[in-house]
Design a protein around this nucleic acid. Sequence first.
DNA 1: CTGAAAGCGCTAACAA
DNA 2: TTGTTAGCGCTTTCAG
Lengths: 348, 348
Amino acid sequence: MKPTQKHTIYDIATRSGASASTVSAALNGTWKARRIKEATALRIIALAREMGYSVNLQARGLRTARSGLVGLILPEHNNRFFSDLSQSFTLEARARGQCPVIIATARNPEEELSTVRDLMAYSIDALFVAGAADPQHISKICRAAQLPHVFIDQPCPDAPSVITDNETGARQLTEAIIDTLAPHSPALEGTGREKIYLLGGDARLHASSRRIAGFRAAMIAHFGRCDDDQVIACGYEPQTAQAEIRALHARLGGMPAGLFANSLNVFEEVLRFLSRRPEPELRGFSLGCFDYEPYGELLRLPVHMVRQRHRELVRRAWELLEEPGSTELVTVPPELCLARPRVLRYEG
Amino acid sequence: MKPTQKHTIYDIATRSGASASTVSAALNGTWKARRIKEATALRIIALAREMGYSVNLQARGLRTARSGLVGLILPEHNNRFFSDLSQSFTLEARARGQCPVIIATARNPEEELSTVRDLMAYSIDALFVAGAADPQHISKICRAAQLPHVFIDQPCPDAPSVITDNETGARQLTEAIIDTLAPHSPALEGTGREKIYLLGGDARLHASSRRIAGFRAAMIAHFGRCDDDQVIACGYEPQTAQAEIRALHARLGGMPAGLFANSLNVFEEVLRFLSRRPEPELRGFSLGCFDYEPYGELLRLPVHMVRQRHRELVRRAWELLEEPGSTELVTVPPELCLARPRVLRYEG
DNA sequence: CTGAAAGCGCTAACAA
DNA sequence: TTGTTAGCGCTTTCAG
């Protein structure tokens, strides 16, 4: 009754009069396959519980070359999209009796790779990588070690990946921004302030490039053109984003007609900037964000958002993993969250 | 050069002409203590790298009865306070060469306990528990297994804990709310709408009870009284919080003078509710939140917040762990983030 | 300065 | 239906 010292299956074997292998089978559920008498198994199980026994998973893992651990690597915890993923990932992992190990690597490719290696040293059973900075390199390492792995959000050509339909999502979001544009003021024509700008993200990354494509497509469909200066893929760093917004505002001599924030990090900086502008400047300003943040719905400034289906992304990722050695790319449509007209609005 | 198959120290031993124990020492850094020739060690290290060798940490862990894993249990990922903790925890763990394992247990005491046991089965080296639902039980289990552990945010009388000075923080926050109260309207006297209400949290939990105490103290200092109905500790469930706000509003026949949201979950629901009220109702409404959320600064409604020093909490927790068997309770003062007067405000 | 050998706790053939 | 045995890959005395 006192689980003070750690017990092993040998203690249980001694106390129960059975052998260690019988105890092992009884305890890990393989006893029916091993044709062990039910009574024996039950007796052992009861005894183990009474003794407060708990398997040593390192020993089991060493023996079986598995560990029960599944890794998830992501850029940061402090981001609603990724914390949603963590949440869903935890659920799915535990539902399968696996232990989730979630590690943030700060969008640093080196940290990312060393984390992959660290996790592999623990013999993790599978690796999920969300928002990878260097998918191909990661995949190469995993393949060399024959570690099942799957990418989420940022895909990899050499490995199973599940991503959001970024292009469609971006197109829809852009259309929503266009639809909310204030009535055209001829005075602004040619100043650049009549345009919509996309801010943030890294054009070299797959997700961003598709979003940019969607943005462009919508622009061209509605205005017949999309200038290069309308896309400002300045990365994810808050400081950089803040500087870019300032620079844009300065260059235009005022607010643009609309803005497409290409990540939550950037969105936050955009809001920070906006909160310091005098209110009249913001009238009719049209804002959208790719990715969803519940607070976005609670601002007095209406904002359209594209919500990635995190639950679905994670589920499909597990499914891909369970298939043999596919290199499939699964695409999940996002959910468009339009700013509803609301009670608290500018003209309120 | 092809790390296709997994290598062991025996492979390296064979290839290098040294013995497995020498290889082991060379590779894990104990070689100088073992008086192994530097040249030998370096040669082995180089060979290992060339072969793409990577230790099997399960084997090491089995042998040493450690694992290099440190656990952090928390209620949810989707909460800025906890994701800040995750971030800080990850940093500290990696700085010490440990691997962070962060698991969310949905404020479910049973899940919490079973997660503790799961983690222990992996021979984690230490356990951090943030926002525990059942600290005493967890601590009992850990002590039985002689697992070093420390509580954050929700303390445990039987184990080292580091918490925020909830009472002071709550008092200051309440004072800030009081300071921003709209000029007193005699018409409301006695309706309950002239009062400030604390919403959310669980009065049975230590953190909440201290916050309630701080709230009460500030109320009494300023108004000479604090009625029981001013404290609505309805838990953390969004739905419940939403229902309580509605009920309060209905009961009072309008908005109260101010609100103290006792957690980010509740805060979010409060905002959701407010966003559906007609603007005039909100004039002069004074809002505060215990815990910090950057979006809180970006709302057009001014909101005071108390920010827990997550970095500090985590650091102190590690320090406590490194002391012998202390039962110390460390208190960290929070940071008060007052709503600044800003450009975008109601009268803007 | 280095090697041999034992064993961490468990599982899985293979015997019985 | 159950026990015996041989490792999984590593660290660590203890001998040399």
